[in-house]
Computed example of a mutant assay.
Amino acid sequence: MLRNLLTALAFTGAERTLKRVILTTGAKHYGVHLGPVKCPMEETDPWIEGAGRPPNFYYRQQRILKEMSETSVGKGGGGWDWVVTYPNDVLGIVSGNFMNLVTALGVYAVICKELQEPFVFPGSREFYTRFDSFTDSRLHARFCRWAALEPDCKNQAFNVVDGDVQSWQTLWPKLANRFGLTVPADQFKGQDEKVVPLIERPPIIEQKESMGLEEVKRGEVRMRIDLSAWADRDEVKKAWERVA
């Protein structure tokens, strides 16, 4: 799709007025969906590709930008350039965007309140107490505006995150308070976690020797509540019909 768009701009001559293309990808550029990665993740880290690795269309998109910008023709000579941004989990309020973490958590909270159920964290206890980072959609928008106009950032990729760290052990009680819910004191007691193993060769294995790591464990996703199964419950569907 990206190649077709850029090809159409070149074919029609519209690319002659094009100055810069801003492409947003994300943390999957670093292979976070495949298992443990090197931390902190840096723009100069090697791409996670090659034999035994699943394809990553983020890499394909970035290569398309580089390739087509080098042959582009602009008004008055030269052509267009590009910038790629790597936000982490983007938080923001956008109507109709159900891939947004804020929307998903809001729906979960509203249904818990409607059913008068405790506000149980659906992930694992381990993840609940670890640290995470996010990207405010407004911050990302301001960065993209800057990147579109700043001459010195052309043909580069940038991590774009809020700059602080968060943990669900702090955020979850705040979210519960926002919706008038209660976090059970024993929310992690007496319930088995569903474990989904990830690929055998996590991204960090590519650099384990240079970092002095003898053993690298295979990644896995752990959850106490499977939200897909939760959303399929009859009482949840009926509650959604009442509040939607």
Rank of each mutant, 00 (worst) to 15 (best):
R3Y: 06
L5F: 12
L5V: 14
L6V: 01
L6H: 06
F11P: 10
T12K: 07
T12V: 09
A14D: 11
E15Y: 08
R16P: 08
T17L: 15
T24Q: 08
A27W: 05
L34H: 07
K38P: 06
C39S: 14
M41C: 10
E42M: 07
E42D: 00
E42H: 04
E43I: 12
E43P: 09
T44V: 12
P46R: 09
W47M: 12
E49G: 01
A51H: 13
R53P: 02
P54H: 02
P55Y: 08
F57Y: 11
F57K: 03
Q61R: 09
Q62F: 04
E67G: 05
E70M: 12
T71M: 09
S72T: 06
S72Q: 02
V73E: 15
G74C: 07
G76A: 02
W80N: 01
W80K: 03
D81L: 02
D81A: 08
V83T: 08
V90C: 08
V94L: 05
S95F: 11
G96H: 04
G96Q: 07
N97M: 12
L101H: 10
V102E: 11
V102T: 14
Y108T: 07
E114D: 03
Q116L: 08
E117L: 11
P118S: 04
E126Q: 13
F127C: 05
R130I: 03
F131K: 10
F131T: 13
L139S: 06
H140P: 01
A141D: 01
A141T: 12
C144F: 05
R145H: 11
A147E: 05
L149C: 14
C153P: 04
F158C: 09
V160F: 03
V160Q: 00
D162H: 06
D162W: 02
D164R: 13
V165C: 10
L171M: 14
L171G: 08
L175E: 05
A176Y: 05
N177Y: 03
R178N: 11
P184R: 08
G190Y: 06
G190I: 05
Q191P: 06
Q191M: 11
V196H: 06
V196Q: 11
L198K: 10
L198H: 00
R201Y: 10
P202E: 08
P202F: 02
I204E: 02
I205V: 15
E206D: 15
E209Y: 13
S210Y: 05
S210D: 13
E215N: 14
E215V: 15
G219F: 03
E220G: 03
R222W: 06
R224P: 03
A229C: 02
A231I: 09
A231P: 10
R233I: 05
K237C: 00
W240R: 10
V243S: 01
V243F: 05
